[in-house]
Design a protein around this nucleic acid. Sequence first.
DNA 1: ATATTAAACGCAATCGGTTGTTATCCCAAA
DNA 2: TTTGGGATAACAACCGATTGCGTTTAATAT
Lengths: 346, 346
Amino acid sequence: MKKKKEVTIYDLAKELNYSPSTISRALNNHKSIGKKTIKKVQKTAEEFGYRRNALAASLRNNTSKTIGIMISRINRPFIASLITGIEKAARSANYNVIITQSDDKYDNEVNNAKALYDARIGGLIVSLGMETQDTSHFDQYIKQNVPIVFVDRVPENFNSYRVIIDNYAAGYRATKHLIEQGCKRIAHFAGAQHVNVYNLRKKGYLDALKEHGLEVDENLILDMKILSFKEGRKATKQLLKLDNPPDGIFSANDTAAVSAILYAKEKGVKIPQELAIIGFNDDPISRIVEPTLSTVSHPAQKMGEISTRRILEHATRDLDSAVSEITMLDTEIIVRNSSNRNLKLS
Amino acid sequence: MKKKKEVTIYDLAKELNYSPSTISRALNNHKSIGKKTIKKVQKTAEEFGYRRNALAASLRNNTSKTIGIMISRINRPFIASLITGIEKAARSANYNVIITQSDDKYDNEVNNAKALYDARIGGLIVSLGMETQDTSHFDQYIKQNVPIVFVDRVPENFNSYRVIIDNYAAGYRATKHLIEQGCKRIAHFAGAQHVNVYNLRKKGYLDALKEHGLEVDENLILDMKILSFKEGRKATKQLLKLDNPPDGIFSANDTAAVSAILYAKEKGVKIPQELAIIGFNDDPISRIVEPTLSTVSHPAQKMGEISTRRILEHATRDLDSAVSEITMLDTEIIVRNSSNRNLKLS
DNA sequence: ATATTAAACGCAATCGGTTGTTATCCCAAA
DNA sequence: TTTGGGATAACAACCGATTGCGTTTAATAT
């Protein structure tokens, strides 16, 4: 149970006959330290295998080189990519990353916000949970000037950084794509409408219909609380039972879109000839389901990188966290077999 | 840029006319502090909104209530569940979790081990990357008595906690299941053989064949470095080209199994009648592919919980980290359509 | 009433960097 | 020769909780 002691700046100070403060500044390339001194100190530090004790620094500065992440669930392809992007950018700046999951429960989100705050994180990246309407649990961060970046699912009325995709345009273009394939009655699997991303996708869908002279049929618009496999099946069933069923579906996520494909196939509906389908997210499954699913792809990893960059910048620039800056990224329509009616059958 | 000061034990001490040490002990329910004092202190702490500064405590103790996780990639269903299990157990014990990904690169793994060590994590949970053969980057943890739990992909010769599944039995039973379905020539998609889980699954496969009097044909055993979609296709192609193709495949993961299903279907091979397939992991995709994929399910989340528990226990028991304790969990064969020849066709 | 002892709490050092302020030294300008 | 100033580096306080050891008080034993 003996612990080998770590090398500290005091050890280096003794070795080199400098004071600890000089060592500290030298290691941080402080301008008030001579060039040769800096070189000498850093060389010795290397030789001694010195490792900066981040805890001590964090305690003193009351902030740490750690980025907190709050997401609903880790096991979604989009989130996984997002995290990968964050992690890469963070690690290359010598930041750590703490991930918390809310499981889309508001209470968990509040608790996680507290826990991360207590960990003195240097910045927070958040994709809101489904239940979240009130965002006051983030107020303390603003007070302490800890930067917050909201990603994807962002709040309406909170002053902070935002990194989002153009959901309206994506919804519009996805719908337009179906129209171009000849669809006349296009259904929409809409997510919870208080969540901005779903709300905007629906708006894009509606405007695309209108601008192309297609009737908006409320029976074809299904507001679903959860865009799950189960709900997707239910919704598809409901649609196919209509006297006048749709000939296209734009689903606000891939999971529900896939369930639509599977259910329609079970019922002998030809895809895409009788029913063209497009999803959202470009989950891996969209390449595996048959027919392969057309979809809209997020630049998820890039969003993670950008979010991290915002936080790092904030730290350097010494800004006030009241800044509000929106970064909007483009999406891409990926046409696969589930919506491509011009395809030669193989 | 003004920062509101946090309440510290010094504030409480002043308020209650106690010394900081008494406050500290009272908050930690130390036995040498009077009952009423403890109550009084904790009540005031509550009122004042006191929040323990974990950094200060960590600095003093040279260890933090943080669990480090090292995995290859977050975007795998098994890993995601594992993490969820870890996170839940950790959070309920007031621990934080730091996740690092190696992307199956050895160098990344070494760096992550260093970074987590610098963060003074209180325990480490590791699922080894594919490349990892040498494990000396974990030695420093042992020296400092920081508990390490290896999960799933564990090293052979490293003294520590292990939480694993019975890969041998799983491989045996999966193969036996195919035999029971009438398969005579069963192929195996084997993963990299220096990784224990793949090695054991293969052993189980081999023994099942032998014990049921089936010939082992080396042409049917494909050692694949990566059990990816692409490699799976390639392997299936190779198998179907044989003069004497297999009538069953046991794949060491679901990804490759799914690719086999898709490729075989393309080639008009009837599943499961002409080719029965079983995978490994029970990834969500196994329910979606058609026919649905039989597979072996891990208790992933439970493994995460148990791993965390090992670390927490270690902290309480004040054990030496030289302890080696193996927890082996059972798996479950899940029979779906890809291998069920007794199924009535719908 | 005195000695013994356990319970309850305080003192002060400690963990390892960071930083405002002060001190020293050297060189150039007056 | 003296003074001003820039360049370097040292001093010491500080971040907030923890803990070994010592002291006080009160209760129990003799």
